[in-house]
Amino acid sequence: MPVLELRHVTKRFGGLTAVDDVTFGVEEGELLGIAGPNGSGKSTLFNVVTGIPFGASSGEILFDGKPITRMVSHRIARLGLARTFQKDAEYPDLTAKETIALAAIYGRGLNRRAAAEAAETQLEAAGIGCARAGMLTTALSVYERKQLMIASALVMQPKVLMLDEPASGLTRPEIAALNAHLVKINKGGVTILLIEHVLSLLLSLAERLIVLNQGAVLAEGDPQEVIRDERVIEAYLGGRSA
């Protein structure tokens, strides 16, 4: 049984269909890549699944066999479906440690002491040292802020982690470090859905790739085969042959 399943999910904004009848499932432990040109509906798909800031117009979403289509977002997070944003989700007046501890308290139900310990563990795993743990999130580097988002999600011990362009704005060494970190997370048993424009990262990580175009699934399958698909090349390059 897939840990996450989308059945004919559609999201409309007036006359615009941003997500168009999308159906797919994600198996437990899988690392699924999601690609597509700008405006193809990738982030909207994540929004619809997590209910932030809006749910689906129609269709059904199942998490661990339970319907979550109409569920409020904080409940979805508490169930074990975590995500990160394309933009840095920073809190100008909270420190890195406070942010992760909040997720441990509200997302996982830990008490303050246990949450503080869990936050320290995650900060260490994310490569944010003790000295920087007490800094405001705005004072962290782009890489650290990305890692902070992932750490905030991981402290809730999610079954599924949805990552929206975690490599955007990162340098090559940082992308390599992120790559290693994501492999470790996935090997730890966390199912990952990864939206990424950095193709090298996506192809090195994804076991399966879904390409969206104009809100609909254009191609799905082995990443190396999918990127050679004529329709995918056309969608990315606008009709020219590669």
Binding site: R83, A89, Y91
Partner: peptide
Amino acid sequence: PVGRSLRAVGQNQEAAALLGI
């Protein structure tokens, strides 16, 4: 924690919901 959750929501509602708030 409750007070910090108020601040988190005030600063970033969508991301706060992701923390389970």
